[in-house]
Simulated scan of single mutants.
Amino acid sequence: MGGLVGHNRGSTVLRACGCAVAGLFLIAGCADDGTPKGGAASRTPAMSGTPSGTGGSGAGTPAPTGSPAAPLVPELDESKQPKTAAEARDLLGRIMIAEQALGPEVVRSTPFESDPGRWPVLDEGCVWQIAGLPADVLATRTRSFHIPAKDGRGRVRFNATVTVHHNREESGWETARAMEEVLRCPDQKLREGEELKKLWGGVLYLGEQMNGWTEDAFTESGTYVSAQDGGPYYYTWSQAQFGPVTVAIAARGAAGYTDEDVSAFVVQGTSRLMLQAKQELGKAAG
């Protein structure tokens, strides 16, 4: 989620919290192909069908099970980086997931898709606002999905976000700002009647702890309270980076879903987004 002030990417604050992100993947549990174990996906701070060019199948692997001959983070092909806002919006369409990527029970919410020229900003009062894009962002888009309430279980909400910067340095600073926001505002207001409480977060760089799948892995977790949906329920946000692109999934839980259920959806969605970013921007093997 957007932020205001960045920390140095090598700061001890970020690294001290880093082990937290590994917990997200341990909680969800992943099979060798990167899909969540336990069948949670099959039950599954925004267009129908899979966007053209995404391939619509497969999932990334958030655990470092690859070999040096087949790295999970390929070399970035800088010639593929978008240079204009129009090119960035085109790339967004090829990376962004549709509802099917999260599971057969997931449907589109209304509103479904955000304006690629607008950006969320956490103000000094820890309230989220919508503003124009900062200079370091070419385009961003968020899609909103949910699992409808039924059979005694509540509605689970998801947001998938892809952001395209000019280069890797700018996308890295986005991750640093996300960590700063958690430290500055452990309690945040999404909108009237919706709040996040007791947030904590962590960052792992490539090669640290369990992170062998993204240049920066960031997660935040806490609780979600809504005047409409009740709560507190589990909330989590997972963000990953490849080159100039960041991808993220946020989930707000509901009655009848465990923390592990919700985390499994987030792992699956983030893995798919990261796989598609690597396919679009990575150098071809060989």
Rank of each mutant, 00 (worst) to 15 (best):
G2A: 08
G3F: 11
G6L: 10
G6T: 15
S11F: 09
S11T: 12
C17S: 15
G23R: 07
L24E: 08
L26D: 13
G34E: 12
P36H: 01
K37F: 02
A41W: 00
M47E: 14
S52I: 12
G56L: 07
S57F: 14
T61C: 14
P62V: 15
A69R: 03
V73I: 04
E78S: 15
E78Y: 09
L92Q: 02
I95S: 02
A98N: 04
E99S: 08
P111L: 07
D115E: 08
P120I: 05
V121T: 08
L122M: 11
L122I: 03
E124T: 05
C126A: 05
W128Q: 10
L133C: 04
P134L: 01
A135P: 01
V137C: 06
F145T: 07
I147H: 01
G152D: 01
R155A: 10
T161K: 06
N167H: 05
N167W: 06
W173N: 13
T175C: 01
R177L: 04
A178V: 05
L183H: 15
R184F: 05
P186E: 01
R191C: 09
L199T: 10
E215N: 00
E215T: 03
D216L: 05
E220F: 11
S221L: 14
S226I: 01
S238Q: 09
S238H: 13
A240I: 10
P244R: 09
A254R: 09
A255L: 08
A255I: 04
E260N: 13
L273A: 00
A277H: 02
